[in-house]
Amino acid sequence: MTTLIDTASHHAGHTDQLITPDWAEIVRITPEADGVTTFWFKFTSPEVQARYRFAPGQFNMLYLPGCGEAAISMSSDPDAPDRLVGHTTRLVGNVTKGIGKLQVGDTVGMRGPFGTCWPMAELEGKDLVIACGGIGLPPLRPAIYHILRSREKYGKVTLLYGARTPKDLLYQNEYETWKQADIDVQVTVDRGDEAWDGRVGVVPMWFYHFRVDPQKTAILTCGPEIMIRFVIYEALARRIPAGRIYVSMERNMKCGQGACGHCQMGPYFVCKDGPVFPFSALEKFFNVEEF
């Protein structure tokens, strides 16, 4: 089997319990766009709050009693001094809609962190193209924060981000800070509005507007599967090796520990062998329909 990303050091502590959550309290709610909200959590147990760490790209299982659990990536800064855990989510499913009705002070169940991370240490010295669409930016924001904290360790960093309309663009008030840190922030929308004077088009098309050095460029991508697909094609066409294209995959997940079977993709359990995979691990069956 292809080498996967090793995140052993970031695994969750609760290996003795099946799926028993800790409780976390909502301390802040940030509306981001229509139907998209960031919830900021703090564990109610000070001991868990002090112990909890995650790496960019990992996810938690959020549990709302009576509704169920959902796998949501962290979207916050893993090294933030306040150690709050941020989850940006679209309010579309049973669980996320239920969480959407909660207020500051309410509690939800939380298990994690689970899964592999963007291999930030391995990527040092590389040029990075972060290509994401819609709700695919939140799982990459912790990676951006990591880059901001040690900007000198990375080469050229380009963020290609697309959304359906200008109103759907997330984290708009942060783009300026990112640009000041020498991140090339390129934003595109599927449909503009009267006020929009930026680019219109899909994320993969952006590859035609700049040059990448295949010797030292790595791709980090997350978003709708169709976008990921074309980002990969464009990256491969520019001779970026499959092992340096990192993809965050989405599947139905129930346990987060490779136990319940739901998230299988061929030999992998996306919840523990992913969600972040080098494309070289997926290549064999990426084009197989309904796999």
Binding site: G66, G68, K254, C260
Partner: peptide
């Protein structure tokens, strides 16, 4: 076969 689901009974 080992697959399982977790469900809530409120």
């Amino acid at each position: 076969c080992f697959c399982w689901d977790a469900t809530d009974l409120p």
